[in-house]
Amino acid sequence: MPLTRRRLRFSISFHACASVCWLVVGCAESADQPVVYCSVDETFGLQVMAAFEDATGITPRVVYDSEAGKTTGLINRIRAEGDRPRADVLFSSEIFNTIRLADEGFLASYKPASVADVPAGFRDKQNRWTAIGLRARVLAFDPSRVKREELPQTWEALSQKKWASRLAMANPLFGTTRGHVAAMFAMWGDERATTYLKALKSNGVQIVDGNSAAVRAVIDGRADWCMTDTDDVWVAQRDGANIELIYPDMGHGDTLWIPTTVALIANSRREEAGQKLVDFLASGAVEKLLAESTSRNVPVRPELRRQLKMDISISDRMSYDDIADKLELSAATARDILLK
């Protein structure tokens, strides 16, 4: 059949229409597929979402955080989306921003079926969030350059010249470092924490892009030790880096433990699917999965800790709500002092 101009036009029109239809279908949203805003590291997030898919046959649609904004970026997106949220579920690698979001009315009240064995301190009284797998704030160092016993045993001692001048820390406006600084304000008081930040600055602390960049600074020899999270050290060790950690005391006999949080977003468009996912994410199975992953999160469920032989006692002498209340003040102070 000869290719006439008319046939060519028809062919192009047909394919253009077919393409548009395909694109529209491709953009259609399924009511079964919850959308998750996830700031848990992608490597571990993928494992958890795959487990959900295996268990339910539903594939969640996930937006992960970016390295620049971490959890804060996703939280600000939820705020900006307001009453038209794109996400149904928040799976956050920290708790303080989740509490703030709950207080601002962006999270729905929903008690997952699987949280009976979660201690009360790790659940919101109004059931707007549930906390699972903990990571600790630690001091990471290269044992070939620094001896473990030489390191300070408290976070507060780090502001001294001999420590701060060789210390790297992540941008205090983002991620768990933001929460860590807020914890200092909540536990030590505003004045003492402000003095501490000033001492860090005047004694030469290095501010880097993020926790993993801080670990990299230690590995590269640009810093001798850094403030970071446990999982950043574990993954660097897996890659062969010569790096170890200690758990300095925040002043209450323990370091700061930061849980992962799960929450259903208010006005969710796929509420039922979102609830299913929240049930799963808050379950012991996910805690176990995170504990056995390279992230090595410590379960909040004491029984699970015993099963996994994680002989760690978590102090309950700090209130996450109190720390969340200090987020704004501490971030503003840290910006003025450390990021000037």
Binding site: S66, G69, T72, N76, R77, R79, A80, N171, L173
Partner: peptide
């Protein structure tokens, strides 16, 4: 600027 984009209110 990237950090401002992610960290500041919309």
């Amino acid at each position: 600027l990237m950090a401002i984009a992610e960290g500041e209110p919309f």
